[in-house]
């Protein structure tokens, strides 16, 4: 598979504050996303994980602070330039009634549209690669409404892959999937990171999955970063209690050797 990443990507925020209406959701967040890593954001419901992803991808204008992408403040790019460098799969993605898989995935090529010309070899190659990477090629003529949850989630990821951005942010990509499909999807993401040289950021709810797949964890609570680092460094009983108010023991995962959180 050939996914081109032609420059080193770099995404970080500097004292970023984000508001929703008049309420401040994220406070003073300075965070650097490791290049070509798999970063996972964890934290209780409503702590501002989605808002942070939206801020990092310029969907929310900062009320204070800045986001930097590839050496420039992100607001200095056009919407389209951002879309060629950074992709976001939101929590709320919805498929229009009756749309087919192939049609949906090819909409991921929108950032590369040119005036008057319609479709290029490059577009064709990117869509095919995205479908193959997510094993959704055989689904192209199916209506998205008729797919299973796991298939549908893979289709959304295919759309984000067709966008061919070096940085990809995913908001809760495994929610609503059964355990087998969650693992399948996480393996797919890890594979993408390793073979495609991409920088991935995902919000995940399952701590043990986060520990197993992430090489960098960001833990948020009440709109602030409580701690960040590699799972082995930061997943300790006292940190988990501070983050979720949950008493637990942390043992070593017998399969992967990463931290395994067991509630008391």
């Amino acid at each position: 598979m050939n996914i081109h990443v032609s420059y080193p990507s770099r995404l970080y925020s500097d004292k970023l504050s984000l508001d929703c209406g008049s309420t401040r959701i994220c406070h003073d967040i300075s965070v650097a996303i490791p290049d070509r890593g798999f970063t996972v954001i964890i934290g209780p419901n409503g702590c501002g994980k989605s808002t942070l992803l939206r801020g990092l991808s310029r969907l929310v204008r900062p009320s204070a602070g800045k986001v930097h992408l590839d050496g420039k403040v992100i607001s200095d790019y056009s919407t389209r330039e951002v879309a060629q460098r950074l992709g976001l799969l939101p929590q709320s993605a919805q498929a229009p009634e009756g749309i087919r898989v192939g049609e949906l995935v090819s909409r991921g090529r929108f950032p590369y549209r040119r005036a008057f010309s319609t479709w290029s070899d490059e577009d064709e190659r990117a869509v095919l690669a995205a479908l193959q990477a997510t094993s959704t090629l055989e689904l192209i003529d199916r209506e998205v409404d008729t797919l299973s949850g796991g298939q549908r989630q893979r289709v959304w990821i295919a759309l984000a892959l067709a966008q061919e951005t070096p940085v990809l942010l995913l908001d809760e990509p495994t929610t609503f999937l059964d355990i087998a499909h969650q693992i399948e999807l996480l393996n797919l993401l890890r594979n993408l990171k390793e073979t495609g040289n991409r920088t991935l950021v995902a919000v995940l709810h399952d701590l043990n999955h986060a520990c197993r797949y992430a090489d960098h964890l960001i833990a948020m609570r009440d709109g602030r970063i409580l701690f960040e680092g590699s799972p082995a460094e930061i997943i300790t009983p006292s940190n988990i209690e501070a983050l979720f108010g949950l008493r637990c023991v942390v043992i070593s995962d017998p399969v992967s050797g990463t931290p395994l959180v067991v509630p008391r």
Partner: peptide
């Protein structure tokens, strides 16, 4: 409209103002 149908966030993330 093809993009807007996907929801505002995804449309914007795909480069639509």
């Amino acid at each position: 409209l093809r993009l807007l149908e996907l929801g505002n966030d995804l449309a914007e993330a795909l480069g639509l103002p």
